[in-house]
Design a protein around this nucleic acid. Structure first.
Lengths: 193, 193
DNA sequence: GTTATTGTACCGATCGTTCGGTATAATCTT
DNA sequence: AAGATTATACCGAACGATCGGTACAATAAC
């Protein structure tokens, strides 16, 4: 089992069950390793697993999902690509966000710090593209936070109501939010829900 | 201890620790009751506690928070009152939402159903006021979902980054979202963050 | 004195964690 | 090159603690 696979499995358990809800048995089954083997790889136990998973989220996943932002091409096209990237990452809204599920309860200070760092990286990435459209620093930050909040909230709504359309809408409205375009009378044809 | 106090304590534990994170010991300590007393009141155990807490959220808390919506007065004033009501409920963004924290992991089918019902009641309440401003049914639903998603996402962001300003902004933008007013160039004076 | 309610003592199961040990591969010694 | 040693990855079995839940006697309320 490669490191990437191992982390993928761990991440999946944590993000669907949360920190407390993810038992070592669950993690062992998901990874195909015995609990003692997990302790060999993570001497710090479950807290270390959560912390390293959260770190990878900030350092690898966020960078990967936001990569299209800093490529070439018109800004709308780049944002469209990021939207598709996020839709894939969250499986259309069917999967929860690690930032949400693992920040509940006692996940240990290292994990909490890593989660906060991941969130801030995401905010900074969005803010950077918002600043491209002429927004000043503070306004860019606000737009970035609002865009992420819209996505995170839609994921919560999807988990509770089993309706992923608000998530699809949040992704669709992402360019408007970041670029400061009026979305009052946007087109919702065939996107009701 | 009155029923209201009892439920308040239980709700507090569930919404800050989630279902799995809320142990019977925690619940017993928070309520000042022994486990046997809790089982006398909730023969169905922790699952029943969670379900009844979620039911009260939908039937009492949502109704209470949204009450100003259906009183007299101009619609902006009513929405302002709801915003203050929600700010109090979430303590300015410092407290998580039960819809979020208790929907993670295995909270039992009754609780899940009650949480979904609570979310839908909230959506319907917001949609009703959105419809007042001339939006058709589908558009009102969308605005209501988006408004709630903005709030829930801001609460997630607040929990992770310890920054409650996105929450304050979500509340502030609530009237604009529901009434379909352009909020592109809204005033953010003294509300940066 | 009857009925609720609580306190105490438990239960089996599972929690996160640790320990002793195995197999293979790399590293060192000579 | 051969043998001894170390490092790495994994496993099975158990640890004490806590989990959610139960049985029942003592107490409180009426």
């Amino acid at each position: 089992m490669t490191d990437a696979q191992l982390f993928d499995r761990l991440t999946d358990v944590f993000r669907s069950a949360g920190f407390e809800g993810a038992s070592l048995s669950d993690l062992a089954i998901a990874t195909g390793l015995q609990k003692s083997s997990l302790y060999h790889r993570f001497p710090g136990g479950k807290a270390q697993m959560a912390a390293e998973v959260a770190e990878r989220l900030g350092k690898r996943d966020v960078e990967q999902a936001l990569a299209p932002l800093f490529a070439d091409g018109p800004i709308e096209a780049r944002l469209g690509r990021v939207g598709r990237s996020l839709t894939a990452f969250y499986e259309g809204g069917a999967k929860s966000c690690l930032l949400d599920t693992m920040s509940i309860g006692a996940a240990g200070p290292d994990a909490q710090r890593a989660l906060a760092a991941a969130a801030n990286r995401w905010i900074q990435g969005f803010a950077r593209v918002a600043a491209e459209s002429g927004a000043d620093e503070a306004e860019a930050q606000r737009r970035a936070q609002d865009a992420i909040a819209a996505i995170e909230g839609a994921l919560v709504l999807a988990r509770v109501t089993k309706n992923t359309r608000p998530f699809a809408r949040a992704i669709q409205q992402l360019p408007a939010v970041l670029l400061g375009i009026d979305r009052t009378h946007a087109d919702h044809t065939n996107k009701r829900g």
